[in-house]
Write a protein that binds this DNA or RNA. Structure first.
Length: 619
DNA sequence: GCCGTTTTCGGCCCGACTGTTTTCAGTCG
């Protein structure tokens, strides 16, 4: 019965998603791009998106095109960039039009790019408008109109021309420019040219800064509530800016408090309803403030994503309403203000949608059908199955780690230090493992605190052999197998190593399956379809590693794993007591993947986990 | 250029902040 309901709900969601036009179609996409090598001569999604964007930019700078035509190119570019399949392949098969925002015209242009290497319309446009102006227009405070003015009034065709004009002090008389904006452009050109790459940081670091600021601003007199919004609240793995919202009787009080905060390096903007600053950590913080009566509207608006909000506003418009951060203008002209987000969504006849799902990937249709899953929460986690002690590369003792897990209310905890081949991390050989077990047995004998599992993070060696013999592995309560070396091997070898571990009757989970490190290295390539298929068949769990630099599996693969019937585990990979708190980020990834508690193995009591494990050993 | 639970034509999300064209356009999120 339970199983039926679960699968039925899952299928329903999947069908709705498919009906939405493959917006959640990461699954098939990843399979096709990772299972077989992409045709080497086809343009990547990024290259296609760059061309479409350039087409839109140059059209806009030229100034003759209908504004919405420009926007259509830009929307198409965004959609192509975020697509998880090869859009060139899709276009060649006539299926790119299945993507939202891609029509017959854009598909034809993508086919043209894929087959001839260029787009004729773009080539003609380049003859009329200098390509370099697109870069000029991307400078902070310039934009297409001013770029066109620079071109027509000063003959500026690229960044170098702009530098020359600026150096001669001939910027300030260009229409649209005053002394302030000229100064701003000059400053940018001097500080290393071009549009600056804004600092990005991990979700973990951004969350820390955002929550500290929110707590401090909440104590400002007259402020009743401050919440973290934006991409931090949606749980994206890497963060470009921090959004905060405040409820205050007088909104104008909050901005100055942010500007004067010790973390603030420079104020960027300041108005009665919003403020922006840059912190010493180099990240931009946006603050919006409003009255408590419409706090729900403000929080919903600032949480985004932009695409999700646009979709909602379109729904509102179709019903004769108009939606903004101030409230929802009803058909009779009154402004309906919502103190809570539930009321905002309710006004559109939708259930509240968890922030982690607000990416315009089909979640609104799922919500409208009443088929949103109840997502897993941190409170659902009963045990920790991946953490280290100072027996290997952890920074705290076994006793300290176990005690910390106990304080978090965990029922069971796996002591899973590295195996012998990972010498760099002080990996344990069989003898040291047995000594560690003696200590575990002593602690368990006391009957206090969480149940401690004999566990390990065993290396999957470069040839696919596990770092411990089968007989020895059989003695552990929980075995996580991970790749730590040879991560750049080809897809075939990585796949073979993962499959070897998955097929072992003693391996319970695969740790950080892709090996990605955010901002440092992309994950290993492997045959996702085969790995998921065998993991499901053998009952081997795949880990969502909660370390902010890993977050691995990534959300799209976790979603695909759930659809394939694979059980997931959320592991902190903690190397200190404080890092056990990273579990919240693993939970966030799981939620972005649409995971319910039932999809996560360590939401179960240990007895059930043992049953799962013995079923696997028997099967 | 895209798209349809009012539409295959006629629309297309919304407001804040900044600087400058002193009543608003450009830019941004």
């Amino acid at each position: 019965m339970g199983t039926y309901v679960r699968e039925h709900t899952c299928n329903m969601i999947y069908e709705l998603i498919s009906a939405e036009g493959d917006r959640l179609g990461g699954a098939r996409a990843i399979i096709s791009t990772m299972a077989k090598p992409r045709e080497p001569d086809l343009p990547t999604n990024g290259e296609i998106a760059d061309r479409l964007e350039l087409l839109g930019d140059l059209l806009e700078i030229e100034g003759d095109a209908v504004r919405h035509r420009v926007l259509a190119y830009r929307r198409g570019a965004v959609r192509v960039r975020s697509a998880s399949q090869s859009v060139a392949e899709m276009a060649l098969a006539g299926r790119a039009v299945d993507l939202p925002d891609i029509g017959a015209t854009l598909q034809a242009k993508i086919v043209e790019l894929a087959t001839t290497g260029d787009i004729a319309a773009l080539a003609r446009l380049r003859e009329r408008v200098p390509e370099g102006l697109a870069t000029v227009a991307r400078i902070d405070g310039i934009g297409p109109r001013r770029a066109r003015a620079l071109w027509s009034e000063r003959g500026v065709r690229d960044l170098d021309d702009l530098r020359a004009v600026a150096a001669e002090g001939r910027l300030k008389d260009v229409s649209g420019f005053g002394p302030r904006s000229a100064e701003r452009v000059v400053a940018q050109l001097e500080s290393g040219a071009g549009p600056p790459e804004r600092t990005r940081m991990s979700l973990g670091r951004a969350t820390e800064i955002a929550e500290a600021l929110a707590a401090d601003l909440a104590s400002v007199p007259g402020v009743s509530r401050v919440e973290v919004a934006g991409s931090v609240r949606r749980g994206l793995p890497d963060i470009g800016d921090i959004d905060l919202v405040a409820a205050a009787a007088d909104a104008a009080l909050v901005g100055p408090a942010l500007a004067e905060h010790p973390m603030t390096r420079a104020a960027l903007a300041q108005g009665p309803a919003s403020a922006a600053v840059e912190t010493h950590a180099g990240i931009r913080v946006e603050l919006k403030a409003g009255p408590p009566e419409s706090f729900g509207n403000l929080l919903q608006h600032a949480t985004g994503s932009a695409a999700h909000n646009i979709r909602l506003r379109e729904i509102a418009v179709r019903r004769g309403m108009s939606m903004s951060e101030l409230g929802i203008q009803m058909p009779d002209g009154t402004l309906h203000r919502s103190p809570t987000e539930e009321d905002v969504y309710g006004t559109l006849d939708l259930p509240w949608i968890p922030p982690e799902l607000r990416e315009d990937t089909g979640e609104i249709a799922v919500a409208a059908a009443g088929a949103l899953p109840t997502l897993v929460t941190e409170e659902d986690l009963r045990g920790e199955l991946h953490m280290h002690t100072d027996w290997s590369d952890g920074r705290a003792t076994l006793d300290q780690m176990v005690a910390a897990a106990g304080r978090l209310g965990l029922e069971y905890v796996a002591v899973s230090d590295h195996s012998k081949s990972l010498a760099m991390a002080g990996g344990l050989d069989e003898e040291r493992v047995r000594r560690q077990w003696e200590r575990i047995d002593e602690l368990n004998a006391r009957g206090e605190g969480p149940q401690i599992l004999r566990a390990c993070e065993v290396d999957i060696l470069a040839d696919g052999v596990l770092d411990f013999e089968d007989d020895f592995l059989a003695e552990f309560d929980w075995v996580t197998a991970s790749l730590h070396s040879g991560l750049s091997q080809g897809s075939e070898r990585i796949t073979a190593r993962l499959l070897a571990a998955i097929e072992s009757p003693h391996v319970d989970a695969i740790g950080h399956p892709t090996g990605r490190m955010l901002g440092r290295r992309t994950g290993s390539r492997f045959d996702v379809e085969r790995v998921l298929d065998r993991a499901a068949a053998t009952g081997t769990c795949l880990e969502i590693n909660s370390q902010p630099r890993r977050l691995d599996l990534p959300d799209h693969l976790a979603r695909q794993a759930i659809a394939a019937g694979v059980m997931l585990v959320i592991g902190s990979d903690a190397h200190s007591p404080a890092e056990l708190a990273f579990r919240r980020f693993g939970v966030t990834v799981a939620r972005r993947a649409g995971a319910r508690a039932a999809d996560i193995a360590n939401t179960r009591p240990f007895a059930e986990l043992v049953a799962l494990r013995s079923a696997q050993a028997a099967g």
